[in-house]
Every structure is written in C-alpha cells, then in structure tokens.
C-alpha cells in the first residue's frame, strides 16, 4: 500500500499542451493550499498596530512576537501540559492496545468477531453521547479539572488504535508466527519477540496518530479542564488567546505557528509510516 506514483506507460500519448495545463492546475492548487500558511507567517511578524490594518506585508518585521507569546502568557505551561497528555496517552495506549489488537488479529477465539464489531461501534460513537455519564464518573473520582480523565482511559485500550493496529497485524503472515510457536514460544513471547519487531511501522503510525490526536484534541480538554486554566492544553489556550490575554492577531498567529510546528516536523520525519496509516484507515477498514 505504499503510495508510489505510477508510470502508466506509453499507452496514452499526451500532447505537451495537456501536460502544461495539468502542471499549471497543480501549481495553482498548490498556491491555494499554501497561501493560508504564508499569510499566517506574515501576520506573525507584524506589530499590534499593523495587525489592525489590512496590510498584507509587514512594514517592520517584528520577530519579538515569538518571545512575547512566552512572556505575556504561560505558553510554556500549556506546552508542558500538552506534552504530558500526548506522551502519557500514547504510551498507555500502546501498552493496552497492542495485545488486544494481536488477540483480535491473530488468535482464534469464539467471540472475537463480536468484540471486534463492538470495537468498531466504540470507534464510531460520537464522544458527545457518553460525555455526561463519564464526566460524572470522573467528578465522583475527584479528577475533573485535570487531564487524567483523558490519559487514564488509555490504560484500558483505545478503540481506534486497536482497530488500526489490528489492520496492520493482519498483514503479518501466520506462518512466521507458527514457526515461533513450534520453537516453543508462548503467545506473549510471539507478540513481543516476533510481532512487535515486524510491526514497527504500524505501531509507529498508530503512536503518531494517537500523539497527534492528543496534541490536537480540543473537546476533551475543554470538557475536563476548561474550569482550570492551570491545566489547559495548547488547543484550549489558543482558542482563548485573543479574549483571555487581550492580544491582537499578530501574537495569535505566532502562537498558532508554534502549535502547528511540531506536527509538521514529526510529519516530515515519519511521512512514510504516516501516509501508510492514513491509507489503512480508509481502504482496508
């Protein structure tokens, strides 16, 4: 399922005119996709006064904005909160979901189909449906106002991750596993010594998805931490920047870039695993 662009051969000869037209369309589309980023970057270098004009180009470049977002507001705290949430959630998810995905993909047991269907239902359930009862549960546990209600459930599996990991594990040939079993490995040893090393790309993709999900999550932190600013994540803080810290678009855009940056950087390092993961969610699943 690697996405390599095709050489469709020479069967349809195309005139150079068509090729030029196609490339022009591609370049125009690329310009549209990139333009918002460009304008955001430009705005992030403006002064507050300029931010309130309709100028598109900064008359004076003001890189100090990127310092201001750390000094005028507790950006660093938000960053730490977001990192804590994303890293713990990802780690816990892997611990709980890899074994479940393995059992669903590679072990025969009655009821596995039923459980897998339940996992799909859980994955498809709009989170808002179960929001109130879960909120009350965490409230009784005294954990609302913190990010724990978003982190702890990862210890007992995440439906989407189980689903995605299972899809990856299905592609591992059973003969390899059987060979390990004949060598006397227990199922746990098969998982840890054979399956995990073979499924590294899939596990990496799932981990990246989970990390991004937590990094981007707005609904969860809004629900559990909106009353407690000390535990806000970047998403919540960013949405409240303008009204909370009484700043103009220039600082908001500088902060916006800062929130985008890690995601883009991770993507460029793990592009292949990432694209493969996206593809699996849509084609096989």
């Amino acid at each position: 399922m690697t996405v390599t662009l095709p050489r469709r051969g020479t069967m349809v000869r195309e005139s150079w005119l068509v090729v030029v037209a196609r490339n022009s369309v591609a370049i125009a589309a690329a310009a549209i996709f990139v333009a918002p980023f460009l304008f955001v970057v430009l705005m992030s270098f403006m002064t507050s006064d300029q931010a309130l004009t309709s100028n598109l180009w900064p008359t004076t470049w003001h890189p100090g904005n990127f310092v201001d977002i750390f000094t005028k507001m507790p950006m660093f705290d938000y960053l730490v909160n977001t990192m804590t949430y994303a890293l713990l959630a990802t780690g816990f998810m892997l611990l709980s979901s890899i074994p479940a995905a393995y059992a669903l993909a590679k072990l025969k047991w009655r009821g596995s189909t039923a459980v897998f269907v339940v996992v799909i239902c859980m994955m498809m359930l709009p989170p808002q449906v179960v929001t109130v009862p879960l909120y009350l549960m965490w409230s009784n546990a005294g954990l609302t106002g913190t990010l724990w209600p978003l982190i702890l459930p990862m210890l007992v599996g995440d439906a989407f991750s189980i689903f995605l990991l299972r899809q990856f594990l299905m592609t591992i040939p059973g003969t390899v596993l059987d060979a390990a079993r004949i060598d006397g490995c227990s199922e746990w040893q098969v998982l840890l010594r054979v399956v995990v090393p073979m499924a590294k790309p899939g596990i990496a993709a799932t981990a990246i998805f989970q990390f991004f999900y937590a990094w981007n999550d707005y609904y969860g932190p809004l629900l559990y931490t909106s009353e407690d600013q000390a535990n806000w994540t970047l998403s919540i803080a960013l949405s409240q920047f303008k009204t909370l810290h009484h700043v103009e678009w220039n600082l908001v855009m500088a902060a916006t870039l800062l929130v985008m940056a890690p995601v883009v950087i991770v993507f460029f390092f793990a592009q292949k695993a990432f694209v493969q993961g996206v593809t699996l969610t849509g084609v096989k699943g």
Binding site: P36, F39, V40, W215, N216, Y218, L234, S235, L238, S239, F241, V252, M253, T256, V259, M260, V263
Partner: peptide, 8 residues
C-alpha cells in the same frame, strides 16, 4: 491542528 487552522 484543527484549532490552529480554524483560528488562522
């Protein structure tokens, strides 16, 4: 990130 994109 959706929040960042929306604000932008």
């Amino acid at each position: 990130p959706p929040v960042a994109a929306t604000i932008a």
